[in-house]
Design a protein around this nucleic acid. Structure first.
Length: 146
DNA sequence: GCCAACGTTGGC
DNA sequence: GCCAACGTTGGC
């Protein structure tokens, strides 16, 4: 049984999402306890949202101001129609905070870390929802807890 | 505030 | 279906 549990655990997916702090900051998510992740109007980001499964872990990045990974969140509801638009092309997911990183991990630090130099956050600056490999996810968390 | 990167739109 | 024009994101 433990063997199968380990396999399932390994299938969990890891993500990084961006938010401009003046639009919706990490602190706001802590206050709200959960939110629906709306505003995605890019197909690649949308496709990533649709791949998210309940329980997947999500790193929360502040773009523009801060430019750092500030917290860890999780998916509590899988993708459904974006309630802020009639347009059926767009979806949202529900996320909830898990913990605040002891030390935010800056973009600068990420760029300077060889294991992280190729993540989409660096390579594809405009993408707002991106997958991470387990190793990359672990590395960022590790940097955040130092 | 500038501009590079890149996605989308629309004319042909 | 190509590609120029345009809009948006986000780092600097």
């Amino acid at each position: 049984m433990g063997f199968f549990f380990a396999l399932n655990t390994r299938r969990m997916n890891y993500w990084l999402v961006k938010s401009e702090p003046h639009k919706y900051a990490w602190d706001q998510l802590l206050k709200d306890k959960s939110t629906f992740w709306d505003g995605v109007r890019n197909y690649q980001a949308r496709n990533n949202l649709q791949e998210m499964k309940k329980g997947d872990q999500v790193l929360y990045y502040h773009s523009n101001e801060g430019k750092e990974v500030v917290g860890l969140a999780k998916i509590i509801k899988e993708s459904y129609q974006d309630p802020t638009t009639e347009d059926t092309r767009w979806v949202v997911v529900d996320i909830a905070p898990v913990k605040t990183l002891k030390n935010p991990v800056s973009l600068e630090k990420i760029k300077a870390t060889p294991e992280l130099a190729n993540i989409a956050l660096v390579r594809q600056g405009r993408l707002s929802v991106m997958p991470l490999k387990a190793e990359e996810f672990d590395k960022i968390l590790e940097l955040g807890e130092e």
